[in-house]
């Protein structure tokens, strides 16, 4: 049996709060993700999907269980994984080129090499001509391209996407989804995407993992057998609509319940 690129084994996470009962965010999460696979995790808010992504990245320590990348246990952030955050995780005082090179600079890559690599990913993300711009001079969509380019520039094995398009308007989001697919097909990364947009999850991924809420557990895994390369027209095909519907039914009750809950 080959070793999975990313293996998540019995992950539990409880957030301790002083003077109050702890909050159980995740319980017994098991997932295995193959090299080059695109997996999306969906679930109602409060299902701990963002927490899981931070545990995979090494930003948070699990209360129980372990994460393995190519069979090696994760204890802290490393260059084999890179995270694309929601908007505004770019350094406002650095240019596009400097932001894309940021991960390389932190890793003390020689400047000439870092610049060269950054330029490659600037081009890949369609940011040519904007190298010397600052994030505040760019649109939300452009900023997210910088975010994706910055993560890819450190050449990770696994790309972690934390609701990367949540802050964008619907039209921009659709364009960004197709761009992400193009970049993914070119770079052959393993991708874990967190989203609450079910159609985004189905459109992008090979497999959708549906989380239940409070504490987050894996409710079901749904294989997406739509052909690639995918086009926006597919979103209107019966098979696509059926998948979105199936997933929606799995989480509908919890989304309704979460509306009535306070955090």
């Amino acid at each position: 049996m080959s070793i999975a690129r990313l293996r998540i084994e019995n992950i539990d996470k409880t957030f301790n709060r002083t003077g109050k009962p702890g909050v159980e965010a995740l319980r017994g999460i098991n997932l295995s993700i193959e090299e080059g696979e695109f997996v999306a995790i969906v679930g109602a808010s409060g299902s701990g999907k963002s927490t899981l992504l931070r545990i995979i990245d090494g930003l948070l320590e699990p209360s129980g269980g372990k994460v393995y990348v190519d069979g090696a246990a994760v204890t802290r952030p490393g260059r084999d994984r890179a995270m694309v955050f929601q908007q505004d995780a770019l350094l406002p005082w650095k240019t596009v080129a400097e932001n894309v090179a940021y991960g390389l600079t932190l890793a003390r890559t020689p400047k000439a090499e870092a610049d060269k690599t950054a330029q490659y990913f600037v081009n890949l993300a369609g940011l040519q001509g904007f190298e010397q711009h600052y994030p505040h001079q760019l649109s939300g969509g452009m900023r997210q391209r910088v975010n994706v380019a910055r993560a890819l520039a450190v050449n990770p094995k696994i790309l972690l996407l934390d609701e990367p398009f949540a802050a964008l308007d619907a039209q921009t989001r659709e364009i960004m989804q197709t761009e992400l697919l193009t970049i993914w097909q070119e770079s052959k990364k393993t991708v874990v995407l967190i989203t609450h947009q079910i159609d985004e999850a189905v459109f992008l991924s090979d497999r959708v993992v549906v989380f239940s809420a409070r504490p987050g557990t894996v409710r079901q895994e749904i294989k997406v057998d739509l052909p690639r390369p995918r086009t926006l027209e597919m979103k209107r095909q019966p098979e696509f609509v059926r998948l979105v519907d199936e997933i929606w039914k799995l989480i509908e009750d919890e989304v309704r319940a979460s509306l009535k809950q306070t955090t």
């Binding site: 930003l59 952030p77 260059r79 890179a82 600079t105 932190l106 890793a107 450190v154």
Partner: peptide, 21 residues
């Protein structure tokens, strides 16, 4: 901004690097 610090940590930045960058 917490997000900026988290992004730096995600790139494995040291404490000193988080401070200086």
């Amino acid at each position: 901004d917490r997000q900026l610090i988290e992004a730096a940590k995600s790139f494995n930045a040291t404490g000193l690097q988080i401070f200086s960058t």
